[in-house]
Structures are given as C-alpha cells and as structure tokens.
Design a protein around this nucleic acid. Structure first.
Lengths: 206, 206
DNA sequence: GGGTACATGTAATCAGTTACATGATTTA
DNA sequence: TAAATCATGTAACTGATTACATGTACCC
C-alpha cells in the first residue's frame, strides 16, 4: 500500500496555513489572519477570505481536521494532522525553483510614464516614495525593536528567529525601494529643470 | 456630458497591455510576450496565455481594436484606441495606493523552516542564494550594459530611460536578496556548528 | 525529411478577489 | 443604548494558471 498522494495541488496559501497550524497549534481562521498580519502579511498580502477558504480544503485532503464550536460564536478551529505535517516537511525539503514575484503597480506605472504628463511622473515618484518610506518606518521599529532588541534571540527559540527573518527581508526591500524612488525623483526633477531652461512649456507630453 | 466610463474594471494586466500597445504600436500577442519578457517580466511574471486573453477584453471595452490576418499564421494584431490612451493616461494620474507584493516561496519556507530538518534549512538557503545570484548576474549585464552603457540614455529617448528604471529596481532587489540569504546561510552554519560542538549528532546522518 | 525550437492559440479549472452580511464586544 | 470596532463568515465572479494542441521555420 502506498502512503499518500497528498502534496499534489497545494498552493503557497496551503503551506502558509499548514505552517501556521504546525507552529501555533490549533487555530481559528481569525487567529490565522492575526498571525499572518504580524508576519508575512506585511510583504505578501493574504485577504482574510483566503484564510477562511483554505482550511476546509486542507481538511478535504486529510491534512487538517476541523472542530466546530456549537455555542456562541460557533468558531471553527482547525488542527494539522500527521499527514499535514509530513506534507509540510516534504515541501520544505523540495527546493523552490520560482524566483520572487515583485508585483508593484508603481513600477508598472513608471514603465509607461512617458505616455503621461510630466506632472504624472512627478506624482508617481512622490506617491511611491511616501508609500515605501511609510512601510519602512512601520516595520523598522516593529522588527528591529521587537524581534531583535526586546528579545535577543535566545538561540533556543528558533521559531522566533526564523519568523524575524521574513521581516528582515521586508526591511531590506523597502530600503532598496526608497533608494530607487529617490533616484527616480531626482530624474524627474532634472527633467523639469531641463524643460524650463530650454523654455518649452508644452504641458501635455514629456 | 460625460466622457467615458472606461477604466472601471481594468487590472494591472490591462494596463500592461495598453501601455505596450501605446509605446510599441500595434502588436500581436506574441510580440507583447516578447516585450514583457525583456522588461517587467523578469520581476513580475505574466504567463503568455494572459497576453492572449487580455487584448480581446480591451477590444470589448473599446480600448483597443483587432486586425485578424487572413492568410498564413492568421495573426491577430491589436491597436490601442484613443479611449485606450485616455484610459491609460487617467490611470497614470491616479496614485497607486497598494504597496509592493513581494511573493517569494523561499521566504515562505524560511518562515516555517523550524518545522523541517536542519538539513532542509541549509538546502533552502543554498537554493535561494543560487537563484538570486543567478538573477542578479543575469540582468546586471543586460541592464547596466545594454541600457546604461550601450546607449548612454540620449536624453531625448525618454521611453528607454523609463523602461530601464524598472529593471534597475530588479537589480536593487536582487542585491538585497543576496545579502539577506547570505545572512541566513551564516545563521544556519552557526546553528550547525553549535550542534556539533554540543556533541549531538542526531537525525539524518547515516 | 525528421527533429527541434519557435510561434500561436484555446479550454477548463480554480484560486483569489471583492463585496456583502451579520454577530459579538467594547466604549462613550 | 448607541456607536464603533472586532470577529466571523459566505457568495459570486473572473482573472490567472495549467494543460493541451497544432502550425511553421530552421537546421542537421
């Protein structure tokens, strides 16, 4: 007899939920949502509806079990099964070949910024700068302060450490993004200066 | 009288196609695919089926027109309409509030790496390092060399410039990623060393 | 003249997104 | 007790992914 055919159509979302169930123990979708919001969610958004939809799928595949509260809020608590853990571990051993998806509509706009007005370019750069600066400020404290300082990574609390890592990547990315958009801003400013010097004041095209 | 109600349900994919049609002129889906592969595609993947499916949607909304070749390959060539250009420009003026989606399954694995073996952690870090180093090498030349050196951005060729920008962000990101995963590698190595020192040689050592 | 890589497209499925809707707690 | 916010879910739609499938050009 064969073991399981599981791990067949599991998505990143599936492994996110499996991983959380494995690490945090039995959880309701709302608790999953909370944990995601604190960690991966800051760089890779998972709408809460997903975290309600995914656990039942796992149950259908025998990777989790459900416990439905009968009173009050009628919460649904999900737990990972042994198969679930196996599946998760098998996935951890399997090298991820895909490289990062860096989906950024600001970048997409920049790509075609020449079709818009010079003013639009200016606006795009400004908006993006404030977005990325905001993000950076946001978790430069929550990460550095909370994870690295508040708790000096007690070496035996590995889970914490690995979790902090994910946020560190976010910080690195946001720093790069701020640098990048500052450069773009300078470019736009230079462009404006050049236009003014050369006396042209045609509004619509760059 | 109102102008148009367009720009209502357009996705990033829509604007990608509109932008390419605006910049490159009438194109077949295959040509779109080529252009995407050269630029945004390296950091934000758009499967080719998307680029076949999107143009007809734009046609249905009056943002593009189709010209179907009757002989040989029966190519379908799409052109942007005036409404399409308006829609694109309106979108460029509209600030993008969403921040970057940084979807990386390597990071997701790292997040739960403590559930796996130490060996798995090592493997993850190694794999990711080679992926990101590969990407970096890949377009550190294609970008820096081709865009910045080969053609010294002749100031009047703005489109080129803006396109190059998108790739520059990719380079910055990959550099950050390499730094990050090098750090993780060190962490894993330290963990291994610590385990060896403390004499435990459990698990997978045959 | 057969293989192989490029070119071109379609179909089915399903995850993901958006929107809606309401229940429970807290606070003013 | 009203308002606000947190908590909990479901339903519909559709874009995205995957898989399939065939045509055309080129090269050995």
């Amino acid at each position: 007899m064969m073991l399981t055919m599981s791990t067949e159509q599991l998505s990143p979302t599936s492994f996110l939920v499996l991983g959380l169930l494995a690490r945090e123990g039995p959880s309701t979708p709302y608790e999953l949502k909370r944990h995601v919001a604190e960690t991966l969610g800051v760089i890779w958004s998972f709408p809460h509806a997903l975290l309600y939809a995914e656990p039942p799928r796992l149950v259908a595949q025998g990777l989790a079990t459900e416990d439905h509260e009968l009173t009050g809020r009628r919460r649904r608590t999900f737990s990972i099964t042994d198969e679930g853990i196996e599946s998760l571990q098998a996935w951890l051993e399997r090298p991820a070949r895909e490289s990062t998806e860096l989906r950024d509509v600001g970048l997409l706009q920049l790509l075609f910024a020449n079709v818009g007005s010079r003013d639009a370019r200016h606006q795009i750069a400004t908006d993006q700068l404030s977005i990325h600066r905001g993000k950076l400020a946001g978790f430069e404290q929550s990460e550095t302060t909370e994870v690295l300082k508040g708790r000096p990574v007690p070496a035996n609390d590995k889970p914490q450490q690995w979790r902090g890592q994910a946020l560190r990547m976010g910080v690195l990315y946001e720093r790069a993004a701020v640098d990048f958009w500052e450069g773009v801003s300078l470019g736009v400013a230079a462009e404006e200066a050049a236009t003014v010097r050369s006396g042209r004041e045609d509004v619509t095209h760059g």
